[in-house]
């Protein structure tokens, strides 16, 4: 056999695999699928385009806008249009779901676990790579949509810059939100184990859920119903992008509550996914 020298490794057989190796391996896996760069590459210009559309409308309407509305301008409304960002969340959730569902459906998960029997580490590395990648995409989108919005406003709607309070929060919130959506997608795939079923669940959770939540959830009164919908990652993120709640009539959670909600979703997703896949016959 043409085996030649490999790296010397005299560590004990039970030595844990190194995090940097596992993360590098998951990075290769994520980026070697053509769909990943295509989807992520399309998302950024798409949301810059959406931001431009929203900001251009506001720019055009500004001279004729009622004074009351001019007193509470909220450029985040143009930069981060909520319904369009629901689609972004669903995309991130699907991407996350596919990292797990793709391995489960193809059987690659067996090859992966034969190579690294420490399943929890493999999955933690996978979650870290996915969450990190999506966070960077969220950061790029967040910074980008602000740039487009501010540039479109120009001199007509003054008083906003990257330094305006709330701008940085919206960017950070978007980065965290995309990462959390990816993790939720992974957890759904781990629970459901079936690719089509997982994608359906992701779409229901990220698209139908927030929309349905805006109506009254029948057995609950308006307050409780609002609590439930505010606990959804989409609305938690939405709260982080609201710069001036002056003219908002809805029930809004506090900003810290919104951050805690996103963190709780991330934690819950990992808490479900890691033990499930650690014990399961694959």
């Amino acid at each position: 056999m043409s085996t030649t020298c490999t790296t010397a490794d005299t560590r004990s057989p039970a030595a844990r695999p190194r995090w940097r190796d596992l993360i590098a391996a998951e990075w290769i896996k994520l980026t070697s699928l053509r769909s990943t760069p295509i989807v992520l590459g399309l998302l950024v210009p798409l949301y810059l385009y959406f931001a431009h559309g929203g900001a251009a409308t506001t720019y055009a309407d500004w001279p004729t806008l009622a004074a009351e509305l001019k007193r509470h301008p909220d450029p985040a409304h143009d930069a981060f249009p909520f319904p369009k960002f629901l689609l972004l969340m669903a995309t991130a959730g699907t991407l996350g779901a596919m990292t797990v569902a793709g391995e489960q459906a193809s059987g690659l998960i067996r090859t992966t676990f034969i190579a690294v029997p420490a399943r929890t580490r493999v999955l933690a590395a996978k979650a870290a790579v996915l969450a990190g990648t999506l966070a960077v995409v969220g950061l790029v989108i967040g910074v980008g949509v602000w740039g487009v919005t501010l540039a479109t406003y120009g001199d007509r709607i003054p008083g906003f810059s990257y330094g305006t309070p709330g701008v940085a929060r919206a960017v950070a919130g978007t980065a965290v939100m995309l990462a959390v959506c990816g993790l939720i997608g992974m957890a759904l795939a781990a629970i459901i184990r079936n690719t089509a079923g997982t994608v359906f669940a992701v779409l229901v959770f990220f698209l139908a859920g927030p929309v349905a939540g805006k109506g009254r959830v029948p057995p609950l009164d308006a307050d409780r119903s609002a609590h439930v919908t505010n606990a959804l990652p989409g609305y938690a993120w939405g709260r982080l992008t609201v710069m001036d709640p002056g003219h908002t009539v809805e029930r809004l959670p506090s900003v810290p509550t919104a951050w805690i909600t996103l963190a709780a979703w991330a934690f819950a997703a990992l808490a479900v996914m890691l033990p499930l896949l650690r014990r399961r016959d694959v």
């Binding site: 790296t7 695999p17 391996a25 059987g107 998960i109 992966t112 034969i114």
Partner: peptide, 26 residues
């Protein structure tokens, strides 16, 4: 175990590269 336990979308290089890297192999 099963020759089909691979992801069809990756190249052979990427498939083996990820496996090698996960074990710290060059």
């Amino acid at each position: 175990l099963d020759a089909n336990d691979v992801h069809d979308g990756r190249t052979a290089n990427a498939h083996l590269g990820a496996l090698a890297r996960s074990n710290g192999l060059p």
